[in-house]
Every structure is written in structure tokens, then in C-alpha cells.
């Protein structure tokens, strides 16, 4: 595939204690805004945006982000990713992250909204070197249809593959197909509408942090179902079933604060968007 609907390349390096761009290239329906250094932190926050307003039939997007040794980045979107109906061919997005030694990436995109009859395939591949840290979240909403019917999209497939020093260390495959599954039922969404995932890979992971996160999630007052578990390498996954994007965002923000505080004695940036 050479004709991408949107293509974006972002390479960052650490120069004199500050993370700066080495290469920023984009074309088509994928863009980043000028970076913002929130709170005068030494690393930038980049906001991704989709000038077309959403993903259409057969659209293909590719993003490649490279962090050199010690570089740090917050990457987010300017608003929710919207996938419209795809009568002929699913919309596709692939993302590749290359995280060199001791680099740090937090990739915190807004929720994914798939409209009626939408089909979407997203594949994230992360290549990490030892010492690198990854924080990744995603939120899947039930979508939207003119009749107000939930889960009216056709098909969502999201695959995350994470490699450490070229060895596969985590593989996550969510495949929601409301036409073929009893999507609301036992084993699937279990009566909830939104699914959030938070994947963290970091050498400082320990069971004390997990206990703390478990407590933090427990403080959420809304009706949710959540689980967290350690990976076989230092890292963990949090999954949340809830009934709104805001609730999952609130839980993930609280968890993000705990992680930043425990590991770096820092506060995460507030990602002003609206």
C-alpha cells in the first residue's frame, strides 16, 4: 500500500535535556499541530488531527513515530476518531512506534466512534528497547445510528502487538462484530456500552503499584466493571467496562496520575482540547 489516505511520520530526539522533533512529515488526511510543552515540561505534546473529519470507505492511514534514546512524548488526538459507514471496504489504520532505550511514550487518543455500518481495522505495533516505557489507552464507544440503536457498526478489529528487543511480549486482539455476537451479553460487554483498555509497559511495575491502581479504580462511583493484571514482563493491562466515555477517561486519568506520581513524582499534563 503506497497510496495512503493519510500518512504521518514523527521522529523525536533528546537534545540538551529537551525532547525535540528531528523529523515531522505528513501528507493527506493526517496532521499534527505544533507541539505544546505543557507546564514547561522538557518534552512535547503532539495533537493528531484528521482534517477530513473522519474515516470513510476504504480509507487507509499510517503513522510511524520514533523516539530516540531518552526522548519523551505525549501523543493524543484533538478529538474522537470517527469512522463512517464503509459499504465496500473497511477503513484501516496502522501505527508503528519505535521506542529506543529509556524513551517514554504516552499515547492517549480520544475515543473511537464507529457509526452505523462502519467497519474498522486498527493495528498498532510497538517496538521497544529495554528501558523504554509505554502508556497506551483506547476507548471504544457503542457508536451511533440515526435511530439511536447501539452497536450499529458492522465490525471493529483492534490489534496491539508489542515487542521488546524484537521479542513479542504482549498481544491484544479485540474483535467486535455485533451482527455475529450477542454483544451485550455474558462474556462480551455484559450490559455495558463502552470498553476502555490501558496498557503499560515499564520496568518499575510492581505489585504495590497494581494494588494502588486497584484502589484508585475502586474509588470510581459510577457503575463499572474493571480488571487489571500483570504481564509476564514488567507491565500490566487495565480493562474497564462502563456506560460512558467520560467515566473511562476519569478512571484512566486517575490511574495515569498514580503512575506518574509513583514513577516520576510528576503530574501528567492536562490535555486541554475543548
Amino acid at each position: 500500500m503506497t497510496d495512503w489516505t493519510g500518512f504521518l511520520e514523527l521522529d523525536l530526539e533528546k537534545r540538551q535535556g529537551r525532547t525535540v522533533a528531528k523529523n515531522v512529515y505528513f501528507q493527506g488526511a493526517f496532521k499534527v499541530m505544533r507541539p505544546i510543552y505543557h507546564n514547561n515540561y522538557s518534552y512535547p505534546c503532539y495533537y493528531l488531527l484528521n482534517p477530513g473529519g473522519g474515516y470513510l470507505d476504504g480509507d487507509t492511514y499510517r503513522m510511524k513515530v520514533t523516539l530516540d534514546e531518552g526522548a519523551q512524548l505525549t501523543l493524543t488526538t484533538q478529538s474522537a476518531t470517527k469512522v463512517y459507514k464503509t459499504p465496500n471496504k473497511e477503513a484501516y489504520q496502522e501505527t508503528e512506534f519505535h521506542l529506543k532505550k529509556d524513551s517514554y511514550l504516552e499515547y492517549l487518543p480520544d475515543a473511537l466512534i464507529a457509526y452505523q455500518d462502519a467497519r474498522y481495522f486498527q493495528k498498532n505495533t510497538v517496538y521497544m528497547e529495554k528501558g523504554a516505557t509505554l502508556l497506551y489507552t483506547d476507548i471504544l464507544t457503542p457508536g451511533w445510528s440515526p435511530e439511536g440503536k447501539q452497536f450499529s457498526y458492522n465490525h471493529l478489529r483492534l490489534i496491539n502487538e508489542i515487542y521488546m528487543d524484537n521479542e513479542l511480549i504482549a498481544f491484544d486482539h479485540i474483535n467486535l462484530n455485533p451482527g455475529a455476537q450477542e454483544i451485550g451479553g455474558l462474556g462480551f460487554m455484559e450490559g455495558y456500552t463502552h470498553l476502555g483498555s490501558f496498557i503499560v509497559i515499564g520496568e518499575k511495575t510492581d505489585s504495590a503499584l497494581l494494588d494502588l491502581l486497584y484502589e484508585t479504580i475502586g474509588e470510581e462511583a459510577a457503575d463499572i466493571k474493571a480488571g487489571l493484571s500483570e504481564l509476564h514482563i514488567p507491565g500490566f493491562t487495565i480493562r474497564v467496562l462502563a456506560n460512558s466515555t467520560q467515566v473511562i477517561e476519569r478512571i484512566f486519568t486517575a490511574c495515569h496520575h498514580v503512575i506518574s506520581n509513583e514513577w516520576y513524582q510528576m503530574k501528567p499534563s492536562f490535555l486541554r482540547k475543548y
Binding site: 486482539h173 474483535n175 480488571g227 480493562r239 467496562l241
Partner: peptide
């Protein structure tokens, strides 16, 4: 391509079992 598909609820119950 369908390898490793997991149902959210099932996986959550497997994670929750720890607690």
C-alpha cells in the same frame, strides 16, 4: 488473522479472579 481474539467480559473475569 483471527488468532487471539478475546471477549472483553471473559477476559475481565479472568483478571478479576486475582482479587
Amino acid at each position: 488473522i483471527n488468532f487471539g481474539i478475546v471477549s472483553p467480559g471473559l477476559e475481565l473475569s479472568q483478571m478479576k479472579h486475582e482479587r
